[in-house]
């Protein structure tokens, strides 16, 4: 069976061990986590967790059922039609071509967000695939540090 990439959102109670319940489940049952983001939902006792994972149709179905089975989990969404965004920040030496970096960042919904003595920091926010393209494209500007946020998604 062919592996498919899927983005799953989980609404779960804010409690100390909730996140480890999720990650333990994935490691115990041998499921992949490509990326995972979590943050509290404003004015509620729940958090929203977005997991990008991959597996066959049956595995994805099991992942959703097993997530549902965890006691603190309120809802699980598997997105079919979604808006997906990821953010990345990259540190470049100030000696690089700043206007090229700025132009490129703009093309990926980003900009230069910080300028220091020897380094600048650029950020972009786009679909995960496009973020990857951006990181490929800026390789020639000698990036010193790269950080990706992991994906977040909302259904259309």
């Amino acid at each position: 069976m062919e592996n498919e990439r899927r983005v799953v959102s989980v609404i779960l109670q804010n409690e100390a061990s909730a996140l480890s319940r999720i990650t333990d489940l994935f490691s115990a049952r041998g499921y992949n986590i490509e990326s995972l983001t979590v943050a509290p939902i404003p004015e509620s006792k729940y958090s929203r967790l977005t997991i990008a994972t991959s597996g066959s149709v049956r595995v994805i179905e099991q992942i959703i059922k097993q997530l549902h089975k965890l006691i603190p989990v309120l809802r699980v969404y598997e997105h079919a039609d979604l808006v997906e965004k990821e953010m990345a920040m990259v540190k470049f030496p100030i000696s690089e071509n700043l206007s090229d970096i700025e132009t490129l960042s703009k093309a990926y919904n980003g900009k230069i967000v910080n300028v220091g003595n020897d380094m600048i920091i650029a950020m972009v926010a786009d679909e995960p695939k496009r973020v990857s393209h951006y990181l490929e494209a800026v390789k020639r500007f000698n990036p010193k540090e790269i950080v990706r946020s992991g994906t977040v998604a909302l259904e259309r």
Binding site: R58, E61, Q62, K65, Q66, K69
Partner: peptide, 8 residues
Amino acid sequence: IDPASISK
């Protein structure tokens, strides 16, 4: 009773 057991 356990949906995760079905079609596992």
